[in-house]
Design a protein around this nucleic acid. Structure first.
Lengths: 228, 228
DNA sequence: GTCTATAACGAGATAGAC
DNA sequence: GTCTATCTCGTTATAGAC
């Protein structure tokens, strides 16, 4: 027998990929809220009921797209980190930030899917968490290496924030000073504020040379978490 | 004559308000992408064609909702600024930031409308710009007052960023040092990164005491633009 | 003049029978 | 898997009430 299950499995993977590809096209045209299994099926020349062999519901297809998007972004961040392996921590940090921005500009609709408005009636399951964490883990890794090596600058930590900072550090990065962990979470959110504002048009008529502007802002974020 | 136009005008204002109110309810339930004139009309016991007396198209209704949301947020920011009139610049800055966060938590769907994913097929006209600028203008005002009074800390400005910083300052705040103007725009975007991450669930399982966390992050933003 | 209602168009989605 | 009958939508034309 010449790999009957193998061929079957391969076909299944191909069809699954085609479905997700068509769904991403629909995402770009109509938005996540209007993603419909029927339209995807139509584009593929299939019948909607056939799709249920691959995705049990519209929400599961959405979840798959979300995980794919987070993984694609996470991979871009990890590649940027690895490419800047031999550079200093600030350069590594900004390289990752720029990779996030570059990925967002290249995949605006997938960015909107994961960092834009929530899709009405859809709630992301816990299975998206590992993929969603990858960028944050990359940033934490840079901080950890800097903490073990050249060291990090001292950061202020008001007493009122200490309990929360300790909780954050315990959950995300027990090796890091608590104030660095807290600052890192803030910088992580702020990074996506910069990217989102550019992508969603808030910088129109405000920032022109966005690449330069972003590079500087990312560098300042690096300083804000203690890198230098 | 007992105010015949007055009664008519009043009725028109009331119906217009009722339409927007119903549209906002729909926004919350179905999202901006699915906002439909017919559903709004149905909820009001009107017929869809009657809505065209008040809004010439669905997109114009969307635009009205967007402007209202920006204005509501801008007013919250201005009130916070005025309430903290006698405090120092850092406290005024953080008060405005907290007002932005508070408004967003109180109006999540309107926040998603103006700072979330763009609505497919809709492009916001220039008429939204004044309302959209209000929060930024409040922040600029605080910086201007600080610059005239106690002064602002010196900020780094790499040569590569200087041309863009000069353009930004010339457009937005000619009275401010160019490096402060550029830092302010970055802080503005970062502020909404923090708010968006909390509102859209990115802080789930990450930040627990969000109010304390946000207050500290907003204070750090104030320092980042030179306030102290 | 100002408004609402009826009816319709063309496009598209949906549900269910077969 | 196919077909059809029935929904939705934005928008317009038209007619009549105030």
């Amino acid at each position: 027998m010449s790999t009957p299950q193998g061929a079957r499995a391969r076909a299944r993977i191909e069809v699954t990929a085609a479905i997700k590809e068509a769904a991403r096209r629909q995402l770009a045209q109509e938005g996540a809220a209007k993603l419909s299994l029927r339209a995807v099926a139509r584009e593929l020349g299939m019948v909607s009921s056939a799709l249920y062999r691959y995705f049990p519901s519209r929400d599961e297809l959405l979840t798959a797209l979300i995980i794919d998007a987070y993984d694609s972004l996470g991979e871009a961040a990890e590649q940027a980190r690895d490419a800047a392996r031999d550079a200093g921590p600030v350069v590594r940090w900004t390289a990752v930030c720029e990779a996030v921005r570059g990925w967002a500009l290249a995949h605006p609709h997938e960015y909107a899917l994961i960092y834009g408005s929530p899709v009405p009636g859809y709630s992301a399951p816990e299975t998206t968490v590992p993929a969603a964490s990858r960028v944050g883990l990359v940033l934490i890794g840079i901080l950890r290496a800097a903490h073990e090596g050249p060291g990090l600058a001292d950061l202020p930590l008001p007493v009122a924030l200490r309990p929360e900072a300790e909780r954050i550090a315990a959950d995300l990065a027990p090796e890091l000073p608590v104030e660095v962990a807290a600052a890192m979470v803030a910088a992580w959110a702020q990074l996506f504020g910069l990217v989102g504002f550019e992508l969603f048009g808030q910088f129109n008529n405000v920032v022109e040379d966005r690449e330069t502007f972003f590079r500087h802002a990312a560098t300042e974020l690096a300083h804000g978490v203690g890198l230098r």
